[in-house]
Design a protein around this nucleic acid. Structure first.
Lengths: 135, 135
DNA sequence: CAACGGTTTGACGTTAACGTAAGCTCGTGA
DNA sequence: TCACGAGCTTACGTTAACGTCAAACCGTTG
């Protein structure tokens, strides 16, 4: 099950994914329990395919962005619904999320700019009153 | 204490700030307990100044960006330390945070792009095999 | 065959960020 | 004067996202 000698391009054990992404197997099982992943089973053992791996990548990115698993679940469903039905509702959700993300990006830009400013101030020698730094 | 008749430009009651930013007074007290705010007191009553209000704005932005109060606390300390001491350590922290935020921004760009793509696909009529959408 | 590593399902523990309720003080307007 | 609204502290409750055992089941390797 360590994938080394099975040489299979498309099948992953839970430990493979855990190691690859630096998370615990517990976390992966938790994501499954929450419906974010649905690996196949061979007996009782979970078997993950590329699709699950791809979803896991999206999950982790969502987490880096500060979203809850609930949010990420909704987000993943946008991928699942291959424009099959309830398109209006889907587009609505996407728009919502886009707006939220764009606002978040603005917050980020502002914060990054402020940090850069702080850095400049910190690096510059402590200017005293009307003095001027020499080139 | 409702600020209406005190007409003071620089003093805020806890309820003023709570209302202005749409959060609970409990949350504000919690931030104080965690050391993110340190309003003055008149008797037992908290009195906030512009400085506290400014910090609160930073706190809320940090939260929108998905940071923990612990993180935000560190972040606020970057503002406090007016390039007075331990500049290297300070710059180090700023660099760290900048890197993290820039990565987060990249994640955001990617996600936004993907959502836009999903939206296009959803809006476009369900293409069947080799057909082509008419202009 | 027995130990070992990997996997499974519980189930309880933990941390963060408040919510909520209780009980008390203080200033004020009818 | 007294009821009210606002504020305070203390303290227990709650949700999310796992961490951390515990107990048991393979498959294989020395």
């Amino acid at each position: 099950m360590t994938r080394q000698h099975t040489e299979n391009q498309d099948l992953f054990a839970i430990a493979d994914l855990a190691k690859e992404f630096g998370i615990s197997t517990r976390a992966i099982r938790f994501y499954e329990a929450k419906g974010l992943l649905s690996p196949e089973r061979v007996g009782a053992t979970r078997v993950f395919r590329r699709r699950d791996r791809a979803r896991l990548i999206l999950i982790l990115r969502g987490k880096r962005l500060g979203f809850s698993l609930r949010d990420i679940s909704d987000y993943l469903s946008l991928y699942d619904a291959d424009r099959s039905q309830q398109v209006h509702l889907l587009v609505g959700k996407v728009e919502e999320r886009l707006a939220s993300l764009e606002r978040q990006r603005d917050d980020l830009e502002t914060t990054i700019a402020e940090l850069r400013e702080i850095r400049e101030l910190a690096v510059a020698p402590p200017t005293r009153s009307r003095s001027q730094a020499a080139g």
